[in-house]
């Protein structure tokens, strides 16, 4: 096991809107370097909340209280003088819905580089854009139309474009929020293949609702339930030898969903908090 680059220490998130919802109740985790960690659990269990609180992205919503700590390397991201944009550059984020910025394909990838001024010449920028588009296996599909709007690509291509845009600022950690859930099976496969290649070089934390995807891609699996950490283990042990009753039920229940009907899914959903209004 490699060293952890990102750790959480009793991280708790509470939505304090009309109704108070404890979305995350003191979660301590370690995300190992250059591995892919999958966060799974029933919907509304706090997966996305956990992910967003790792780079303070939840702060764009009002009425969120946070306690505990997140440490990147040896630096807390909450008790720090480092400006939030710098932190977010080091911990990138790819949202669930494939989202092209209202810019050309080229500018979508160059976006972060330009903002941080991390290039010396147009030629260098061109090289960087090509490099990252190749990295996400998109270059061959777009090299002759870099100036067209990113939004004209298919959703699967846009999702890979998002990966390229996030990777271009060389984050130490990449957060992916259900990045394949909005895609058709073939596009999802392509994005998965890309992630598969990327995980050797980057520390990736991925939220997924698909247990099969976690099985296929993840080195480590984290199981959340109702805002609490139930179990975390390397992928093989997690699925073959789940330690907690809840995990056993969830893994088993999921299998039942796959082969039978939605009965066990409604069990899994029983009593879970409704996602707070955004």
């Amino acid at each position: 096991m490699t060293d952890a680059v990102l750790t959480t220490d009793e991280l708790a998130v509470t939505y304090t809107g009309n109704r108070e919802v404890e979305a995350l109740k003191g979660v301590s985790l370690e995300f190992p370097e250059n591995q892919l960690t999958a966060i799974i659990g029933p919907s509304g269990c706090g997966k996305s909340t956990l992910l967003k609180s790792l780079n303070r992205l939840h702060e764009i919503q009002p009425n969120v209280d946070i306690a505990g700590n997140v440490v990147l390397g040896d630096q807390s991201i909450y008790n720090t003088d480092e400006p939030t944009p710098e932190l977010r550059k080091r911990i990138g984020y790819v949202p669930q819905t494939p989202t092209a910025l209202p810019l050309s394909i080229y500018e979508n990838v160059a976006y972060g580089l330009k903002i941080h001024g991390e290039y010396d010449s147009k030629a260098e920028l061109d090289d960087q854009v090509e490099h990252y588009l190749r990295k996400v296996n998109l270059w061959d599909e777009v090299e002759d139309r870099l100036e067209t709007p990113g939004a004209e690509l298919s959703t699967g291509q846009i999702q890979r474009l998002c990966l390229a845009r996030s990777l271009a600022v060389e984050p130490e950690v990449l957060l992916c929020d259900e990045v394949t859930s909005a895609l058709d099976p073939i596009s999802a496969e392509q994005v998965e293949a890309t992630l598969e290649e990327l995980k050797a070089e980057y520390t990736i934390v991925m939220v997924t609702h698909s247990m099969d995807q976690a099985k296929r891609l993840a080195d480590t699996v984290v199981f959340l339930y109702l805002g609490e950490l139930v179990e975390t283990n390397d992928t093989q042990s997690f699925f073959e030898n789940p330690q907690h009753e809840r995990t056993q039920e969830f893994v088993k229940g999921h299998t039942a969903v796959e082969y039978a009907d939605t009965e066990s899914e409604s069990d899994a959903n029983a009593g879970e908090p409704v996602a707070p209004n955004r």
């Binding site: 967003k52 992205l57 764009i60 944009p85 949202p95 972060g112 600022v169």
Partner: peptide, 17 residues
């Protein structure tokens, strides 16, 4: 969509950018 804001902030852009 909030994803636009998250995508931009997520690569380290400031709010004004």
């Amino acid at each position: 969509p909030d994803e636009l804001r998250e995508s931009s902030l997520g690569v380290g852009a400031t709010k004004w950018e």
